[in-house]
Simulated assay, not measured.
Amino acid sequence: MPLDILGLFECDPFGNSLLFRRIIIGLVGWLTYARYTVVNRIQIEGTENLENLPINNVLFLSNHQTYFADVIAFFHIFCAVKWGFQNTLLPPVYLLGPRARQYYVAASETMKKGIVPRVFAAGGALTIERSWRAEGREVQRAVDNSANEKIAKALAHGWVVSFPQGTTTPYAPVRKGTGHLIKNNEPIVVPVVINGFRRAFDKKGLRFKKRNTLLTVQFKEPLQFGPDDTVDDIVAKVRHAIEQDAPEWVQ
């Protein structure tokens, strides 16, 4: 549209206003900023690997420690990188113009529990029905075939954060759906390793558990995949890159 110079009327592929998304992300950012810089300390590494990435078809794969604190930290960092910051969130001027083309994969049951998760969902959640787990129990149900379609649409529009283990349990197996997603969409895959979030926050990532905790977020160089890599090969590379190869004492 000729009047859409500032993106005021732009929508994402799911029909959601990007202006509204920016407002939500900025609001959540201001409300949570002190959690990462005052109450706790965040150490960021590797944002130089993000500076020259395209605006779309980038998939961030990370280990998972809380439902929401991890994702919010990523959104802070992505917005800061947009403003040219490198490995820092200081000062928080980046929240005046947050990045809206960012999404994260989340279990639909998690995003329906309370007002706060519903607000977070409006900030770019790609909700999926997990086929292996529900309400904290192991289950077996039909695979959510709409999941890959949602993620593919989001990748065509921007950056997507996914937690390929599908759980906050350390050393859980990487789901093969991640391998299929990579083979089918061929995104740039950036592995991320986080630590400290489990110590600092409760499982949901909304309440403090221990203050003055060092939170670390490391962005590694994009992974390289060959045309002959199988789904199992891709899964193994991802598991190793996000440092979730189970040690002997776990096995």
Score class of each variant (00 low, 15 high):
residue 234 I to Y: 01
residue 157 H to F: 08
residue 86 Q to N: 14
residue 114 G to S: 13
residue 79 C to W: 02
residue 101 R to G: 09
residue 21 R to S: 07
residue 36 Y to D: 02
residue 223 L to Q: 04
residue 245 D to G: 10
residue 180 H to T: 14
residue 47 T to H: 07
residue 14 F to W: 13
residue 219 F to V: 04
residue 89 L to Q: 06
residue 109 E to V: 06
residue 188 I to F: 06
residue 174 V to A: 05
residue 61 L to W: 03
residue 105 V to A: 03
residue 89 L to F: 09
residue 234 I to D: 00
residue 36 Y to K: 03
residue 217 V to D: 01
residue 8 L to W: 10
residue 96 L to R: 15
residue 114 G to L: 12
residue 86 Q to G: 12
residue 3 L to E: 12
residue 245 D to Y: 13
residue 62 S to L: 04
residue 165 Q to E: 09
residue 240 H to T: 15
residue 140 Q to G: 14
residue 181 L to N: 00
residue 156 A to F: 11
residue 166 G to K: 00
residue 14 F to C: 11
residue 179 G to Y: 02
residue 106 A to R: 01
residue 102 Q to V: 07
residue 178 T to G: 04
residue 150 K to E: 07
residue 250 V to L: 15
residue 124 G to P: 02
residue 72 I to Y: 01
residue 191 P to G: 05
residue 65 Q to P: 02
residue 233 D to C: 10
residue 116 V to I: 13
residue 214 L to G: 13
residue 238 V to Q: 00
residue 40 N to S: 07
residue 250 V to F: 14
residue 235 V to D: 02
residue 111 M to V: 10
residue 49 N to T: 11
residue 224 Q to D: 15
residue 249 W to I: 14
residue 8 L to D: 11
residue 87 N to D: 11
residue 142 A to C: 14
residue 243 E to L: 09
residue 248 E to W: 15
residue 69 A to P: 02
residue 197 F to L: 06
residue 98 P to M: 08
residue 135 E to I: 14
residue 181 L to M: 09
residue 187 P to C: 08
residue 144 D to K: 04
residue 211 R to Q: 14
residue 186 E to D: 11
residue 106 A to P: 02
residue 174 V to M: 05
residue 46 G to F: 05
residue 47 T to D: 07
residue 141 R to P: 03
residue 128 I to E: 00
residue 124 G to R: 01
residue 187 P to G: 06
residue 106 A to N: 05
residue 75 F to P: 00
residue 162 S to T: 11
residue 217 V to G: 01
residue 24 I to K: 01
residue 93 V to C: 15
residue 1 M to Y: 12
residue 97 G to Y: 14
residue 84 G to C: 11
residue 152 A to D: 08
residue 212 N to M: 15
residue 41 R to S: 09
residue 15 G to N: 13
residue 246 A to G: 12
residue 161 V to R: 01
residue 26 G to I: 04
residue 89 L to D: 06
residue 145 N to T: 14
residue 173 P to T: 11
residue 170 P to F: 06
residue 175 R to I: 06
residue 73 A to E: 03
residue 137 R to G: 13
residue 220 K to E: 07
